[in-house]
């Protein structure tokens, strides 16, 4: 646990400022970029609180995976009447390259965590990955095994219901199209 007020205040300033900006921007892409900053600053909080494993998971899932999903959904739900500006493409290129570099850093960090004996930096920051991973494994597979199984069961039900829901939606949209065609023919 790092008890440094300067790091704390800088991280909290970034977190709150970008969270407010994310809510205040009208352009959804700008708010998404601010949200990425919020998620990364939250991972900084996790790191200075002494939970390195959670920090890596937060940076990987919320900092990289979730923005990709949201970005794809923005791309799929953008109307054709509103084309993107050309200047936006350069921003997107820069941000995607930054994300790619961060993903590379993440992979390198993971590989270092897996082999702490061959890398002395991990000894300097007093990060014993074997203990952390074994404690997490004990928590998930022994202490909270029922919660883990319940969550997996819930996710399975969600996926099954989801496929049914999408099938029904397709049927309903087909019916709507047919009705529209009949009305136009009449």
């Amino acid at each position: 646990m790092i008890n440094n007020p300067i790091i704390f205040y800088i991280a909290s300033f970034i977190l709150i400022g970008f969270a407010l900006m994310s809510m205040l921007f009208k352009n959804i892409i700008y708010s998404l970029l601010c949200a990425i900053m919020v998620f990364f600053s939250a991972s900084i909080f996790f790191y200075i609180l002494g939970s390195e494993y959670n920090a890596i998971i937060q940076a990987a899932i919320y900092g990289l995976a979730v923005p990709i999903i949201i970005g794809l959904s923005i791309m799929f739900t953008t109307r054709k009447n509103k084309p993107y500006k050309e200047s936006l493409l350069s921003y997107i290129t820069i941000i995607s390259s930054i994300l790619f570099i961060m993903a590379l850093i993440y992979v390198i960090m993971i590989s270092l965590v897996m082999t702490p004996d061959s890398f002395r930096f991990m000894e300097l920051v007093q990060f014993n990955s074997y203990d952390v991973i074994s404690e997490f494994a004990r928590g998930i597979f022994i202490d909270y095994v029922w919660a883990f199984e319940l969550v997996s069961l819930l996710l399975t039900i969600i996926i099954a219901g989801f496929t049914l829901f999408s099938g029904r939606l397709k049927v309903e949209s087909g019916k709507l199209k047919k009705n529209k065609e009949n009305r136009t023919n009449v």
């Binding site: 939970s51 494993y53 959670n54 404690e135 997490f136 004990r138 928590g139 998930i140 202490d143």
Partner: peptide, 9 residues
């Protein structure tokens, strides 16, 4: 026992 960390995960 890393309870809070596990639930956060």
């Amino acid at each position: 026992r890393f309870d809070g960390f596990t639930i956060a995960l």
